[in-house]
Design a protein around this nucleic acid. Structure first.
Length: 103
DNA sequence: ACGGTGACGCTCA
DNA sequence: TTGAGCGCCACCG
């Protein structure tokens, strides 16, 4: 199982209404500085929508990218109950690396 | 093997 | 506080 597949596995575990960051996923995989590679993996995610990659945002709480466009990503998140103001998500909705360790 | 690419993150001005 | 600059890392030709 390669790095990309591990990323997709973790992303699958993010509950509806919650989000995480590229950085937290990198931490959970034990490769602290690979947040950029995590973004790459999600960009190429072939399992949409089974892998909810729209629930992954940047560590500064801004939206980050999305293959179908940032606006679409925002729509999906708000539809799931994550409020966004000034293109920033609510920090309280972010689950951290420990969540993945225990799951 | 090697260099280019990108849905990132941190630092410093 | 905001943005440019630079480092990072897996993947692919």
């Amino acid at each position: 199982m390669g790095f990309n597949e591990k990323v997709w596995e973790l992303a699958k575990k993010i509950p509806k209404g919650k989000v995480t960051t590229y950085k937290e996923i990198a931490f959970a995989l034990g490769s602290v500085n690979s947040s950029r590679a995590v973004g790459n993996a999600l960009n190429k995610n072939p399992y949409w929508p089974s892998v909810p990659c729209h629930r992954v945002v940047k560590s500064d709480y801004s939206i980050g990218g999305f293959s179908k466009g940032t606006e679409e990503k925002i729509k999906l998140l708000e539809k799931e109950g994550v409020k966004i103001k000034n293109h920033k998500i609510e920090p309280s909705k972010v689950i951290c690396r420990d969540f993945f360790r225990r799951n």
